[in-house]
């Protein structure tokens, strides 16, 4: 079953085309990676899907409903959650309170929201951090907190925007375990933007590649790693030289 359909999506800022005629589907239960060089329009794509940006043209269909013109909070209520690349938490909310904000979407009761938040934090192995303020935490922990907050919405589809960027290998492992837990144990469909190739190649079922705002390739990790256009656009000449023109998932 198709959960998300993006049809000929175009987003312009003034004269600049950040997303141009992008189409792809995400099926129920899939894990889809979005990759592409910096400035390829990945985050813009997320912002369009999650309703933060109005799209210039094209359609977005989520769970059988046209969400193209819906506002961000309406999209979220339908069960489409997302995280942010830079989580600028300047305020005074603690980790637990942050997750509660998400949980409050589905309940009015404080005690229910709190119980749900505690459960999510436990599942993601974040319960030790519950009472810290988000702004006091290191980046790695902040990124996991934003995942936990998004889970509070009980989403059908979770968009993860670079949750592993800038983390060390151990932290990447932890985040990967979290994502797998979300995907297989909770049964949430996941779409992730990622620069950490080791991770995205390993866990995605399918990968969509963007370059200069256009979709240049789509397919399973093996074929993406071999696709000459992807290699040229994204991986660069040097990578081709060192790895013999193939991106191996294990590297």
């Amino acid at each position: 079953m198709t959960l998300l359909e993006v049809q000929a999506l175009t987003k312009e800022f003034g004269g600049l085309r950040a997303n141009c005629d992008i189409s792809f589907n995400v099926h129920q239960g899939e894990m889809v990676g979005i990759i592409g060089p910096n400035g390829a329009g990945k985050t813009t794509l997320f912002n369009c899907i999650s309703g933060l940006y109005p799209v210039t043209s094209g359609r977005i269909i989520f769970a059988g409903r046209d969400i193209t013109r819906l506002k961000a909070h309406e999209v979220a209520r339908l069960g489409l959650a997302r995280t942010f690349q830079v989580y600028a938490a300047t305020g005074d909310l603690t980790v637990e309170e942050n997750v509660m904000v998400g949980c409050f979407l589905r309940t009015r009761s404080r005690s229910q929201a709190m119980a749900r938040a505690k459960q999510i934090l436990y599942d993601l192995k974040l319960e030790d951090l519950s009472h810290y303020r988000v702004s006091e935490l290191p980046v790695a922990a902040q990124k996991r907190v934003t995942m936990a907050t998004a889970l509070g919405l009980d989403p059908k589809l979770l968009l993860l925007d670079e949750v592993a960027a800038g983390l060390n290998p151990n932290e990447v492992e932890e985040v990967m375990a979290n994502i797998k837990h979300v995907h297989s144990d909770l049964g949430i469909t996941v779409m992730l933007i990622e620069h950490v190739m080791e991770m995205v190649m390993k866990i995605s079922h399918r990968i969509v590649v963007l370059d200069y705002g256009e979709k240049i390739a789509e397919g399973d990790p093996q074929s993406i790693a071999k696709d000459p256009r992807v290699i040229k656009a994204y991986l660069g000449e040097r990578y081709v030289r060192e790895h013999g023109g193939e991106l191996s998932p294990s590297s």
Partner: peptide, 11 residues
Amino acid sequence: DNEDVARSLGI
């Protein structure tokens, strides 16, 4: 804290 984040949390 952040209005965009709040929006995407369904607020």
